[in-house]
Design a protein around this nucleic acid. Structure first.
Lengths: 129, 129
DNA sequence: AGCGTAATGATAACCATTATCATTATTATG
DNA sequence: CATAATAATGATAATGGTTATCATTACGCT
């Protein structure tokens, strides 16, 4: 059970075609604009299904969840509060330290999310002048 | 502008009285149970005001925002997906590494949130048997 | 006391997401 | 192949946390 239907394939293709971070509404809009016929509920269910299959990844932000293409390596995010741009980064040491901290507290770590907030170079310059 | 009214004082006292992580509804409920008269909208506004004054801190989780008493030192959170227990931790190196990463990308860091998900000792044991 | 400003409270509105349910598509099986 | 079983779809209602609205009340100040 868990079928890769045409709708889900379309969602997957869309997300795989870029390294954007999409919310459900953007996905629905893009697919409809591209001529597909897909309901918003189907988009939500499709995104959830694809994520559970490990075909796409997601970050849960304050307001909404955003999906991105599955990357081999885990990474974290840096979000510009000025323009909304999302930059990715990964740092092995930070990962290892988290495992140490979890181990110390006898915590069975299953996942984590690190988000850095701030201003990207452009927005910072904009603000300075 | 930004007055510390009786309602806001009550919210602040409640939060300062423990190291729980409260959501807005829990705060409202607790205050009403304690005999106070306060509307839910006032609780939301009060929490936002107190946070902006730096008198309380918050973590934004997927479903809702939770408030805790302001701590001198920044810390991050470890959340048990079994029982919902929230444990705090802080790690200087992780903080420093984030600053380095931001600097490398010319990102003006203003804040961050690191949440580790997993099972606390009790829930892990429960699951194993 | 009186004025300007901010806060309150009830409630409507918002917005992302999930649930419902009848219909349709897909897969499995005799 | 036919058809039964199961899962997915789509429209829409419902949910839940949070914010907006607006008339009323409280506060701070001269």
């Amino acid at each position: 059970m868990q079928r890769l239907t045409v709708q889900r394939q379309a969602i997957l293709d869309l997300i795989n075609a870029s390294n954007r971070h999409w919310d459900a509404d953007e996905v629905a809009r893009a697919l409809v604009d591209a001529g597909a016929s897909i309901g918003i509920a189907t988009v939500y269910r499709g995104l959830a299904a694809l994520e559970s299959l490990g075909l796409i990844d997601s970050i849960q932000l304050a307001d909404k969840k955003r999906y991105e293409r599955a990357d081999k390596a885990h990474h974290d995010h840096m979000i510009c509060t000025g323009c909304g741009h999302i930059e990715e980064f990964s740092h092995e040491t930070i990962e290892v330290l988290q495992q140490q901290i979890a181990a110390e507290k006898a915590f069975r770590l299953t996942g984590h999310q690190l988000v850095m907030f701030g201003l990207c170079r452009d927005c910072a310059e904009e603000l300075d002048r």
